[in-house]
Design a protein around this nucleic acid. Structure first.
Lengths: 109, 109
DNA sequence: TTGTTATATTGCAATATTACGATTAATAAT
DNA sequence: ATTATTAATCGTAATATTGCAATATAACAA
């Protein structure tokens, strides 16, 4: 199929999966790390920094923007991107809750 | 293509993406949540619990096992699965480092 | 041995993802 | 106005993912 049966899972499970999915490509990880490092930068900088073609970077930026993790601001012919700190914090809370569960005491091996 | 250019990214970026990718499907999130909740369970229980076909669950379990996040133990005709707590802790450290970066002070909008 | 149960593997169809060339749109500079 | 610059969009090829039916495997039971 190639299509997840989202309807049989909880909203939280689907939300976690959606966030995780967007982090599931090293280019998007690299974009976010770069934005954290230098606060704001234009699309062209990311193209140079990362080394993928401009349409490819643009596509990755779009996915990050769709999930609300970054914001873009048009400045002349450039577009300046930055972390959406409010949404990042919300996302982090969701992911931490998942990652930070109490480890089981019993294991099977 | 459908194939990430992993060679242009750092080991850490690729590692983060690999972990995130495995969390990028709600079935695998659900499996892990269930294992955290009841410590250990056999494959068949997960099939009932989650509601996907047995081969599908088996495939998701394999991916979690390949990344080292769960362990499987053969018990007669059943296989008992549990969280690999040591590797989970290691994974968590990597992901937290990524998620918990200091928020930028400057934004572009 | 024969059958039963539980899980893994194989094969495949449907869909999604990744990457990029070509093009478009929008602003800026001359 | 014309041209350059920047980024988004479109179209498409290559590959990956998801889900399951069918089958294989492995352990136990009678």
């Amino acid at each position: 199929m190639g299509l997840a049966k989202t309807e049989i899972f909880t909203d939280l499970q689907n939300e976690i999966a959606l966030f995780a999915k967007v982090f599931g490509h090293p280019a998007r990880v690299a974009i976010l790390q770069h934005l954290f490092k230098i606060d704001t930068c234009v699309c062209g900088d990311l193209v140079n920094e990362i080394g993928l073609a401009q349409p490819t970077i643009s596509q990755h930026l779009k996915e990050l923007k769709n999930l609300g993790l970054i914001k873009g601001n048009v400045e002349g012919t450039s577009v300046c991107y930055c972390i959406n700190t409010e949404n990042w914090t919300k996302m982090k809370a969701v992911m931490l809750q998942f990652l930070d569960q109490d480890l089981p005491q019993t294991t099977c091996c």
